[in-house]
């Protein structure tokens, strides 16, 4: 995965990893963990999933969904793209899939049977009327978390945008100079 610094060609932290990108899409940070970059993986997982679920909680779990039918009462793609927020929320991965399952009427386990189901419009309006601005900030959180995961997927695919070679420790430098001296003698 890690490549040693070489005199020829640019330095790269690892080869492009499509599997890493897919894993990071499904669960943020999973691609990095798969690549052995545990610290960053856990940071992405906790930060992005935390932000996404906090956003959902602020919106009373009613801000991640897609419409089941469009304005003309038709299902399919035209209904799917009616709620543009989902275009950002989708990129958080599996955490946003129940909304698609609800749209395509895929049966979900009992525990999450109504999770991310399109809320009743009357109840939703009442909730917004009786709330402060927190629900509005809530859907922003969910969209921001999804958009940030695109960067995380890129990091899993191609490594960090700016890659610097770690400085050798004193021990490593001493070992390298000793080896160089030996080679010189030989």
């Amino acid at each position: 995965m890690s490549s040693a610094p070489s005199a020829s060609g640019p330095l790269s932290p690892h080869e492009p990893s499509p599997l890493g990108a897919v894993l990071s899409y499904i669960i943020p940070g999973l691609g990095q963990i798969y690549q052995g970059r545990y610290g960053k993986g856990v940071l992405f997982m906790v930060s992005l999933l935390g932000m996404f679920f906090l956003g959902q909680a602020m919106g009373n779990w009613q801000n991640v969904y897609v419409h089941s039918v469009d304005e003309r009462g038709r299902g399919g793609f035209s209904a799917l793209v009616m709620r543009w927020h989902y275009g950002g929320q989708f990129w958080i991965g599996a955490a946003a899939w129940p909304a698609l399952a609800q749209h395509f009427k895929v049966p979900l386990p009992e525990v999450i049977r109504d999770h991310q189901k399109m809320p009743d419009e009357g109840k939703l309006n009442q909730f917004f009327s009786n709330s402060d601005k927190a629900p509005d900030l809530g859907w922003v959180y969910t969209v921001v978390a999804g958009m940030l995961n695109i960067l995380v997927m890129y990091d899993a695919y191609a490594g960090p945008v700016i890659f610097t070679v770690p400085k050798p420790t004193t021990k490593e430098s001493a070992k390298a100079s000793a080896e160089a001296k030996k080679e010189g003698v030989a």
């Binding site: 932290p13 940071l43 935390g50 940030l148 990091d155 960090p160 890659f163 610097t164």
Partner: peptide
């Protein structure tokens, strides 16, 4: 919180 998460995640995608 938003500021902390965004700045940390963004920076972590730019550096190792």
């Amino acid at each position: 919180l938003m500021l902390l998460v965004i700045s940390l995640v963004y920076s972590a995608t730019r550096h190792e």
